[in-house]
Design a protein around this nucleic acid. Structure first.
Lengths: 108, 108
DNA sequence: TGAACATTGGAACAGATGTTCATATATCAG
DNA sequence: CTGATATATGAACATCTGTTCCAATGTTCA
């Protein structure tokens, strides 16, 4: 039985993952993601909660949508966004958990 | 008993996490990180394995070092790099695991 | 229909970012 | 010391990216 090193990814997978990380790697965009992680949130509401303009949030949401990190659902005038699926939700939860952990630094 | 929503991060924590994600969100840099995830790797070896110039890898390693994502250890002429700590290693492992999972997309 | 609201889209701009090239530093062998 | 190897650094450049502003679209209600 021969198991490949669990850390290695194919170049394609690496690019794919990097792409996801790059999209999440903007403070406003990450804030937007977190704002619609646990429940649906309308664009205007997200913008207000983060102190951003509706336009800016919409622009970011387009990128998040293109990256399949969020999904949109229209209801009347408003469009509600949610983190796309359990996969993304799980990744975000893991990251949050790690940020919350005590910053156990080894030897400097 | 009142539990805060587990998804919410403080603005500072959000910026901190976004910073980490941004640094990881470049394909070459992510490749470098993965290259020194399971074991130490010298700059030249990383560069060769990824098909990049030593200079470019060194530049990226400086960013990774500044973000405390990797640590350096000098041994003779060579400098060996490793993922900084168990924290970062765990985050990367989680991400890898998720990328490897079947792409269970919900309804489009 | 028209007005009001919510979201989207495009153009434009400043600033950040990845890469290359050339040069500098560090370590070791002779 | 000199030369060779390994890594780091700095400047320059083209490209990408986040943001703002304004116009356009779509939706609801009178």
């Amino acid at each position: 039985m021969f198991r490949a090193e669990p850390e290695r990814l194919s170049p394609d997978q690496t690019v794919e993952l990097a792409d996801m990380l790059r999209i999440m790697g903007d403070p406003n965009r990450l804030g937007i993601l977190l704002a619609c992680l646990s429940a649906e949130a309308a664009v205007g509401r997200i913008a207000a909660s983060l102190g951003l303009t509706d336009s800016l949030v919409s622009h970011h949401l387009r990128l998040l949508r293109a990256a399949r990190l969020v999904r949109a659902r229209r209801q009347g005038k408003q469009v509600f966004y949610t983190v796309a699926d359990a996969h993304v939700r799980s990744v975000l939860s893991d990251l949050i958990a790690h940020v919350r952990e005590p910053g156990q630094r080894g030897a400097e």
